[in-house]
Write a protein that binds this DNA or RNA. Sequence first.
DNA 1: CGGGACATCACCCGATTGGGGAAGTGACTG
DNA 2: CAGTCACTTCCCCAATCGGGTGATGTCCCG
Lengths: 210, 210
Amino acid sequence: MSDTAPPIRILTVDDHPMLREGVASVIEAQPDMVLIGEAANGREAIESFRQHRPDVTLMDLQMPDMNGIDAINAIRGEFPDARIVVLTTYKGDVQALRALKAGAMGYLLKSMLRKELLETIRAVHAGRRRVPPEIATEIAEHAADDALTEREIVVLKRVAVGSANKQIAATLGISEETVKAHMKSIMAKLSANDRTHAVTIALNRGIIEM
Amino acid sequence: MSDTAPPIRILTVDDHPMLREGVASVIEAQPDMVLIGEAANGREAIESFRQHRPDVTLMDLQMPDMNGIDAINAIRGEFPDARIVVLTTYKGDVQALRALKAGAMGYLLKSMLRKELLETIRAVHAGRRRVPPEIATEIAEHAADDALTEREIVVLKRVAVGSANKQIAATLGISEETVKAHMKSIMAKLSANDRTHAVTIALNRGIIEM
DNA sequence: CGGGACATCACCCGATTGGGGAAGTGACTG
DNA sequence: CAGTCACTTCCCCAATCGGGTGATGTCCCG
């Protein structure tokens, strides 16, 4: 807290320049923070991280080229003590869970206020984890128990684009009966009425993307 | 262009404070623009418009409480010469069409650059329409011809949450055969393989929301 | 007034889906 | 090594969906 303490060096990663601009202007108004880099996707994020070694990284999840989860995994693989805060629009609870599993120390929604952003940056920089209670409870409610398996997600993605069980079976090289078994399991886990409902639930929770 | 010309007075409407911050910092760096208000949803936008009468309004579409389309309609109803620029994340082409029909003069994506934002603000302020070619062509491709009717959208929304035709018929007080007829029409218009596909296409195009 | 779009309903029939239960394989783990 | 989990396959059968075709009434527009 002394005025000789080095500032917190921050990297922002988001594909919306305007959003980065907002974060930048908030950070630059803080005496104890300095923005040292920006990136528009996961790939740039990794490069920029290697180059600048920021104290705290603010990472969006939904980006072209390379998404935030993969970027977090890559960065934490190389720099295990990297402090990363996820800053994203809603996007479902599974994303949040994945990000935290990948080693994110904080999770923020873009609808949150400046104050919360700054508090989270300072907390994470100090080595503390920081996840808003709304997010934490939502993660606890879903995700943990009834997570879809890899295979089920593959199947559900095909269903989302209008494939029939028979077609899915053909492209995956398995029996139609197997696809039906996966569908039964998917609908049970998501408490969906039918395949369409399963798709919309999965989209809402961030289990599949469009 | 003389330095005695009054500045362009701007109102920003978006539910993400961080995004508003970004727009604000860009605008405040311009000598010929001034930010005179912010709003976080459609309702606040209308209030703020009445109070400040901005020259140009930057409006997000997807907001809680009251969405951007409704806000544009309300504002243009009261102030027919209001100049409104839509500034949104992707969100499908139907949204863009609706916004332009509602009287928006410009359409911008949040992934666009500062330069384009400023150019659009100046163009719209000068009374010119300004829509990026990508958006314009996408609107031309879809929307116009095979738009869903009100009734079809109602039906499709129910399908999205897992209702069977029979249930939809019951809640709408019509025959199941009628629901099936609507579904046939919907799938034909959207070129969907099945009901699930119809839902994901409609979500992508912004025809229905989640 | 003659379309044209919309919403409604009907019938037929094959294809697809979804619910039930059962069971074999391989891999990983306590 | 026994147990669990993911993935796989099979059977039966009722319910639902989707395609084809046709028809009625209404409302609005030229």
